[in-house]
Simulated scan of single mutants.
Amino acid sequence: MIKLDQFLKLLGVASTGGQAKHMIVDGDVQVNGTLETRRGRKLVTGDKVTVGNQTFEVGDLES
């Protein structure tokens, strides 16, 4: 598992944790097609995160 804000930072969508937090709180992020405003939302393999017109799938984080 990985938290949503950490995932955005890992991808490079957000350059800092603070920027990721603002993106999430401002309503710029969807998880599995649903608006998500909790930065601590835990993501699992297969979850789809959408920011703007880009969608990213959470891969197997163990590999």
Rank of each mutant, 00 (worst) to 15 (best):
46 G>T: 15
18 G>W: 13
55 T>I: 06
58 V>F: 00
47 D>S: 01
9 K>L: 05
58 V>T: 04
54 Q>M: 08
24 I>R: 07
58 V>A: 01
21 K>R: 12
42 K>Y: 01
53 N>Q: 07
11 L>D: 02
21 K>P: 03
26 D>E: 07
7 F>N: 08
59 G>K: 13
25 V>N: 02
21 K>Y: 07
41 R>V: 12
40 G>D: 09
4 L>S: 12
3 K>I: 13
52 G>S: 12
35 L>C: 03
18 G>E: 06
51 V>A: 05
49 V>S: 02
22 H>D: 12
59 G>M: 02
61 L>F: 04
52 G>T: 14
62 E>R: 15
34 T>K: 15
53 N>I: 13
5 D>F: 09
52 G>P: 15
25 V>G: 04
39 R>G: 10
50 T>N: 06
24 I>Q: 05
56 F>M: 13
29 V>I: 01
50 T>F: 01
32 N>D: 14
19 Q>Y: 00
52 G>H: 11
52 G>C: 15
60 D>V: 12
24 I>S: 04
4 L>T: 11
4 L>C: 15
36 E>C: 15
60 D>M: 10
50 T>K: 09
53 N>C: 08
32 N>E: 10
57 E>P: 14
25 V>H: 04
58 V>M: 05
47 D>Q: 00
8 L>Y: 04
41 R>S: 13
46 G>E: 14
39 R>K: 13
19 Q>R: 10
16 T>V: 14
51 V>Q: 06
28 D>W: 09
27 G>Q: 06
45 T>F: 02
62 E>K: 13
32 N>C: 10
5 D>T: 14
22 H>W: 02
48 K>M: 07
23 M>F: 07
59 G>F: 01
29 V>N: 01
27 G>C: 02
47 D>L: 02
26 D>Q: 08
1 M>A: 13
22 H>Q: 13
31 V>A: 01
57 E>S: 14
3 K>R: 15
51 V>F: 06
6 Q>I: 10
40 G>V: 03
20 A>Y: 04
38 R>M: 09
62 E>N: 14
14 A>H: 05
63 S>E: 13
38 R>T: 13
12 G>A: 11
10 L>K: 14
14 A>W: 02
9 K>R: 14
30 Q>D: 01
49 V>Q: 03
61 L>R: 02
47 D>C: 00
47 D>W: 06
28 D>E: 05
62 E>L: 14
38 R>Y: 12
48 K>H: 00
56 F>V: 10
5 D>P: 08
6 Q>T: 15
20 A>L: 03
58 V>W: 00
50 T>C: 06
43 L>N: 08
37 T>Q: 10
8 L>M: 01
28 D>R: 14
49 V>G: 08
7 F>S: 03
24 I>P: 08
11 L>E: 05
51 V>N: 03
1 M>I: 15
19 Q>E: 12
